[in-house]
Nucleic acid binder design. Structure first.
Length: 281
DNA sequence: CGACTTTGACCTGCGC
DNA sequence: GCGCAGGTCAAAGTCG
């Protein structure tokens, strides 16, 4: 009886060890997938930036910090359905010499367009993050007020957002993001659906003239590469291991939520177990 | 009562 | 140096 119990225990221990090894293997595979994913995103970001630089070269440089000519280029991007995202490499030409000398760390700037009801006067954009409004101004080039937001998700996060209605289409909200979030998106923790929804790349964007019947604003021609830069940078992976860990967890959760994946995994595990049992006998 | 929003004042950069 | 315009601050107001 005791011998039987001992053999069962040792078998269980062996099984546990094997499962641990399997788990380790799967984790490694997942890490590899993450790396491949990051490489692909980086390539995409480089491609988008390249196309934006060639686009910018055709426009005359503005004399002021913000010029209408620059906004026109953005507006045409909405109509054309082309995503707009710019790094400070382009923005540097708008900064003064003094600023350029001081600004060693380049800030990331991206623009996101949201389709809303024209009657909706609020400048609130539900993009998954929590924002604290700290100011509102009426600018010269646009009669509608511009709202200024700071990221309220984390006290250390210095990301800022400007939201203003488009001059051409009052139903389109233009959100300008400055900087990078040093924390995960709050809604991403619960579900990755918001990620798919707000970080949509180009073609899948809904038509610009669509009359939204939704309560929430609909993103139009959306690209937010702040996440991409965060995950692609090798230094950021060192600086923010928890972010990388979270990304892995998110991917793992999305995979486990996939019934096909879990079924395939279960089949593989049981297959391996069956194989091992057969070889042991 | 705390968190959030509003809004006038203030700061800063740029052009003239 | 001055004025303009964009951006930020912070006290007061509002809301749950």
């Amino acid at each position: 009886m005791r011998v039987e119990e001992d053999s069962t225990t040792s078998a269980l221990v062996d099984e546990l060890k094997r499962v641990n090894a399997e788990n380790k293997k799967l984790t490694e595979m997942l890490t590899l997938m993450c790396d491949n994913y990051n490489v692909l995103r980086k390539q995409l970001m480089e491609y988008v930036n390249k196309s934006n630089i060639t686009e910018r070269d055709q426009t005359s440089p503005p004399k002021k910090r913000k010029s209408p000519a620059r906004d026109d280029a953005i507006s045409s991007a909405v109509i054309g359905g082309v995503s707009e995202s710019s790094s400070t490499e382009q923005d540097d030409q708008y900064l003064c010499k003094k600023q350029r000398e001081e600004t060693v760390v380049k800030e990331k700037v991206s623009r996101v367009y949201y389709k809303t009801e024209a009657s909706d006067t609020t400048l609130v954009v539900k993009d998954g993050y929590q924002w604290r409004k700290y100011g509102q101004k009426v600018t010269r080039d646009n009669p509608s007020p511009r709202a200024y937001f700071k990221c309220a998700c984390a006290p250390t996060c210095s990301v800022k957002k400007k939201v203003q209605r488009s001059v051409e289409d009052q139903s389109v909200l233009v959100a300008t993001y400055e900087g990078e979030h040093n924390h995960p998106m709050p809604s991403q923790i619960d579900s990755n659906s918001s990620l798919n929804r707000y970080i949509s790349l180009g073609g899948s964007a809904p038509p610009a003239n669509r009359t939204s019947s939704l309560a929430e604003p609909t993103p139009v021609s959306t690209v937010d590469l702040s996440e991409a830069k965060k995950t692609t940078s090798p230094t950021s992976r060192i600086d923010f291991p928890e972010v990388h860990k979270l990304l892995v967890e998110q991917m793992a959760s999305s995979l486990t939520k996939d019934p096909n994946f879990t079924a395939a995994l279960a089949a593989a595990v049981t297959g391996r177990l069956y194989q091992q049992n057969q070889t042991e006998k």
